[in-house]
Each structure stands twice: as C-alpha cells, then as structure tokens.
C-alpha cells in the first residue's frame, strides 16, 4: 500500500471509529437506570406542577438552595401570584435552568433567580450534570451550540456512558425490565397527587425525591442528618464571572425583556459559621462583582446578602439547604423587596 492509499484508508478507519463511538453514545442517550430515576422523576413532577398553574406566576429558579429554601405558599399568600419552584440542583448548567424557565414563563410573569454563587463562576459542565442530562433531557444536549456540545462531552466520563449502554443492552436481554425499569410519568403524577391528598401508601424517601415536594415544588421533608460544618459560599476567592455565565444570563435577560417577564435576583441563604465573614474585602469584592454583573444586564438583586445570613440551626443536610423554618424566614426577609419590585 502506498502512502496516499494509506492516508485514505486511515481517514476511512477514523471515520468508522467516530461512527462507532457516535452510535455508542446515541445508544446510551435517554436510557434511565437506577441512579437517574430520582432526578428524572423530580423533573416530571415539577413540569406537572408548572403546567397546572394559571397566570400570573412567580417562577423560582436556581440550585438546590432555591428548591429547599423558599416558602412558596407564603409568597402566594402575600403577593397573590401563583408560585412554582422549578429549582433543582446546583450542578445543573445555568443554561439548563433558563431553558426550563423558558418552557413555562409567559408575559407578565416574574422569575426569581436564586443562583448559588458558584454558578456565576463556573466555566464548565459538571460530570454529574452531563450524566443526568444525557439520560433524561437529551434534547438539552442537542440544543447546545457546537463548541458547547464539545465542552459538554468533555465533562462526560466514558464510564458513565458505558454503564448506561450496559443498561441498554439489558433491555435486549430482559434484565433491565426486571430490575431497573423506571416508573412512567403517569405513575409519577399519580403518586404525587396521592401523596398530596394523603392517599399514598408507599415509602417516602427523605432525600431528593419527587414525593418530598409540596404543590408548589418546594422541598418540604426535613428529617435528614443535619449539616454543621464550615463554608465560605465561594465568596472568599477572587473568582471572575465566567464566560459561560455571562453569555447565558445575558441571553436570558434579553429573552425575558422581549417577553415582558420581570427577572429578579435573590441571594442564597448562608449559615453563620467561622468560614464566612462578609465584611472581609475579598467577600465584598466578590459580592460587588456579582452585583455589578447583574446590574449590567438590568437585573436587580432583592436585598443585600447580609440579610440572608441566618443561624446555622436553620440549615438542613448541607450548607445550602435550609429547614422549613429557615425557608420561611428567608422568604419573609425577601418579601418586602419582592413586593417593592412586583409590577
């Protein structure tokens, strides 16, 4: 074989290799098995709640600080708006959070964005998020631009793709249906409504489960081991706002303005602890960086971060999750600012 033919053959074998990998990747897409069931069901439940409300609505979005940390019923009572908590997990890309909001928010609605501080600085996709998204929200992956797709795939460990492909193989052998098959969307909704109406007879897990949500999508069950550690809430480092966050939040702000939707920013609840001192220059500089960035997009924060530093006893299993009482207190502190901004 001469060099020219060799290079052609090499190019063809490479294309075949890439095709095999693409088929392998495609085989694992949308293939839920045990570790993905919980998040998949939570998303189904949140979508069900979101579809059932009528306008005008306040949509809460962010990481799990928002899922655990708002008393939506209190907001509804005080403002008269419907309230849906779409927030989920800090690992989810901001772009994903905004896409979820775009699915439901309409003209005249309000969005409260309570992003974890780390979400402003993150310039990559977490492997947790890429694994979950390829399984139960593959449409998000396909919606990404080419460079973002490449970055997304870079964060997806191939061992996770292999695991889900094995699960796909299990569908052919019948083992998947016996051991790993998730419940359907209809079952999720049926169980959820049964739980709300006190008819549900199954076991309710304590942790990250659709059965632990109220009718607004807030997390309500707090009987897990309590967190009592130290955390600086990513305020002490000199992290710049990431390019990803800049682009995603700017696009979202433009979309909201074009659709006459009000977007308000909220600080996350922070536990008093030795690692957190908001008076330090580093912390103040980081807060200013976040505030300036938001204001440059025309997005105002509701109050100051100091208002949301609370007793550590009001926190649940991690530094970012408040107890029900913590959520109520945070919401109470937020409400005056919110009412001031509501149209």
């Amino acid at each position: 074989m001469n060099a020219q033919r060799f290079l052609i053959y090499l190019a063809l074998s490479l294309l075949s290799g890439v095709a095999i990998v693409t088929v392998w990747f495609a085989a694992h897409l949308g293939m839920p098995w045990w570790p993905h069931h919980s998040n998949r069901e939570v998303r189904m439940a949140k979508h069900y709640i979101a579809k059932s409300v009528s306008e005008p609505t306040i949509w809460i979005q962010g990481g799990s600080n928002a899922w655990f940390g708002f008393d939506s019923e209190l907001i509804k009572r005080e403002t008269g708006y419907n309230v849906v908590n779409l927030a989920f997990n800090v690992n989810m890309p901001t772009e994903f959070c905004f896409d979820e909001t775009r699915l439901f928010a309409k003209e005249g609605d309000v969005v409260i964005l309570a992003l974890e501080n780390s979400m402003y600085f993150r310039d990559n996709y977490s492997s947790y998020a890429t694994d979950e998204i390829t399984i139960w929200a593959p449409e998000f992956f396909w919606s990404l631009s080419f460079p973002r797709k490449a970055r997304f795939l870079q964060s997806l460990p191939w061992q996770k793709v292999l695991a889900s492909s094995l699960a796909r193989l299990g569908t052919l052998t019948g083992h998947y249906d016996k051991q790993l098959k998730p419940i359907s969307e209809a079952e999720v909704i049926e169980n959820l409504t049964a739980r709300w109406e006190g008819r549900y007879e199954g076991e309710v897990p304590a942790y990250y489960n659709y059965l632990t949500m109220n009718r607004h999508g807030d997390f309500i069950q707090t009987d897990h081991e309590l967190w009592r550690g130290e955390h600086d809430y990513n305020l002490m480092a000199r992290s710049p706002i990431s390019e990803m966050s800049k682009q995603d939040l700017a696009e979202f702000a433009i979309w909201a303005r074009d659709n006459s939707i009000t977007v308000l920013m909220a600080w996350l609840p922070m536990a008093e602890n030795p690692a957190l001192d908001l008076s330090l220059p580093h912390a103040q500089a980081t807060i200013k960086r976040i505030t300036d960035f938001s204001e440059s997009l025309g997005l105002e924060f509701l109050g100051k971060p100091e208002e949301f530093v609370m007793d550590i006893e009001l926190f649940y299993d991690t530094s970012h999750h408040t107890t029900a009482e913590g959520a109520r207190l945070r919401t109470e502190r937020l409400l005056p600012h919110l009412q001031h901004h509501l149209p």
């Binding site: 001469n2 090499l10 074998s13 490479l14 290799g17 870079q154």
Partner: peptide, 25 residues
Amino acid sequence: RPVFSKKAAILISIIVVLIIIQSGS
C-alpha cells in the same frame, strides 16, 4: 522504506478513538 498496512491504519484509528473517548476524564 515505509511499510504501510491496513493493520497500521486500524491501530491508529483505534488509538485516536480511545484518546477522544478518554479526553474528558
């Protein structure tokens, strides 16, 4: 003198594909 073979092309393709697969982790 160079000796080019299909085996070499396939081996190189496998290496490239494995590098792509592993590049994320």
